[in-house]
Amino acid sequence: MDAATRTGTANAAQNGRAIFECRDVRVFYGEKQALFDVGMDIMEHRVTAFIGPSGCGKSTFLRCLNRMNDIIDGCRVEGSIRLHGMDVYSREVDPVHLRARVGMVFQKPNPFPKSIYDNVAYGPRIHGLARDRTDLEEIVHTSLEKAGLLKEVKDRLDSPGTGLSGGQQQRLCIARAIAVSPDIILMDEPCSALDPIATAHIEELIDGLSENYTIVIVTHNMQQAARVSQRTAFFHIGELVEYSDTEEIFTSPSDERTQGYITGRFG
């Protein structure tokens, strides 16, 4: 195995329990290989950041974790990804069920063109998580609360989610993901479409959420990775170059490609 995997597993012991164990993950888009033998453990209740230049495979890898790549024609995943010891690509795993347990927040805020309430209530509704109306309301309220949005929208839960500001929409999407009580929340560059103030808001939120959730965040913003994450993985041209504690990556990277990227020499 390459250096990256070794680094990743060596550090595992100091960081608590691994929730995702990924080994030799290879992804192909048709003939083209997009990821080469990626192996890493993602720690429970930690924020893990994936950084790297555009096209390095960080989003591709993120989308393997909840099998979002399944919907892309010609996409093939090899290797093993285990969630709580269960291979997510095995036959027994229903990708739909998996996606409910591994929530996702996307680059561009994408609330449903429905009311704020229905946006958050949709997941619990289709999964039958609420016993009755009051239970559902409770779920919606706590989810919005956790996403730090409740105060701003509690008087207009019936107004359309698409009418909120960009930052609010993104927090609504986070509330929507939280509402189905996932173990893990994947965030694919959640702040890249937001202004600095909204970004700061989301980053604060991620900090708070990491107490109860495992968060994996893809970002092209190195400062953001440094601010919010405890663990950072650096990807380059489809390879996991280095995976370690965030502080270590940013202060004393062991690979010179990482060094080059974080000092801004390429990327």
Partner: peptide, 26 residues
């Protein structure tokens, strides 16, 4: 837009739920 499909898939909607609840009404 595909973002709506992704959003629904992301909260664990199955293909028919994505289609009937979101895509078709839109």
């Amino acid at each position: 837009p595909p973002s709506i499909r992704e959003a629904a898939l992301g909260v664990g909607a199955s293909k028919h739920q994505v289609t009937l609840h979101h895509v078709l009404p839109l």
